[in-house]
Design a protein around this nucleic acid. Sequence first.
DNA 1: GTTTAATTTAAACGATTGTTTAATTTTGCG
DNA 2: CGCAAAATTAAACAATCGTTTAAATTAAAC
Lengths: 210, 210
Amino acid sequence: MNPTQPQIDKRDHLINEAIELFAEKGFEGTSIRDLATRAGVNIAMVNYYFGSKEKLFEAIVAKKATHMRGVLDMILADKALSEIEKLDAIIESYIARFFAYHTFHRVLQQELLVSSRDHMHETIIDLFVRNTRDVVGIIQKGIKSGKFKKVDPELTFASIIGTLNQVLSSGLMCNKLMNKPKNYNPYDNPQFKKRLTTHIKCMVHALLLK
Amino acid sequence: MNPTQPQIDKRDHLINEAIELFAEKGFEGTSIRDLATRAGVNIAMVNYYFGSKEKLFEAIVAKKATHMRGVLDMILADKALSEIEKLDAIIESYIARFFAYHTFHRVLQQELLVSSRDHMHETIIDLFVRNTRDVVGIIQKGIKSGKFKKVDPELTFASIIGTLNQVLSSGLMCNKLMNKPKNYNPYDNPQFKKRLTTHIKCMVHALLLK
DNA sequence: GTTTAATTTAAACGATTGTTTAATTTTGCG
DNA sequence: CGCAAAATTAAACAATCGTTTAAATTAAAC
């Protein structure tokens, strides 16, 4: 399409198709031939652009990793927000992010569960640990100032992300619980998104506020 | 070992080794040769006993699926327990189960995330959906009787299981958050188990009780 | 237009996958 | 023991895997 940057377009196109396939079939379950066919390129192009299948995966993570950090840093630095307002903002941005890129976050969750690719496994954990420490900091500040109850900060964040991941794990499961047809996409439903946001906020407020 | 039931012993031995390997490397990441070597049997034995790699997987799920249902049915039928006491009992049995067989539950979580093996995917979802409906029933009963606040029943259960799954996703992540060494096993730590139990119960109580 | 580099291709690489075969060993039973 | 069934083995099966190669095509630069 863009004659000045043809290689970037193809790279991005490959990355996007790979995210979809990895989310659907997992890392090992996705073959380079599947990916190449779906993306409409030769099978040698993946290694030509990325060097290997695993490096393609790392390229995907690297492309996505920075965004959530930026959003978090913005909220953390905002001095106009109270602790609970910061938590609410973080919850909202996580839900927005996870819903918009739910297939990608399924890939991340898979790598969290599998430890065969050591380097990738630890990279993803480090990203998550850093986010956890930031949120834990907010909660601890709220506890020290007497605004929050004395909860378990790390596990409180685990509950927020865990609830989201649980819902994102399987669209088919969501549909069965909501009596929707099999091919329905619950992550495109703004009502469902609102419902999840309300629940997580209520949960955190009930847990933290006196 | 047991000369009267040698085939059952080997079957069980294969299943146990397969659970460990699948949890560590995933379904596709585990080869039958790996499994056979680890279990000390010939590679043809897996197909001899189970018919195929996928049927071995289904045998694993079938073996484990019944237990949690039995525990749930016991709690549901216990008329001496109030709604919140039933929820507490369910939380405790889930944590006990997930901690004792954390590798197995990682395998289940992986299959929940990957939809390439349709039949297995749906089998696991149906198991989960049934458990969800039971717990939702308890919560709705508590709401109708005025004991519970008007929460979202399905998502409340998602938060319980989601928190547990989040913690179970990666032992390495737990260790990093608790400043433990890499090779430490957090799921063998009774203090950590107690900590998680306390948190989830506090969360559910704060969310439900007035 | 020619040349050089970047891109794309088809084909083949060796390795590994799940599975099957057919021969062999072990076991249970009369 | 002798015989039949079950269990186990080594070997090979076809298929697929990620990756590489070397030739062909396209694009860019002079």
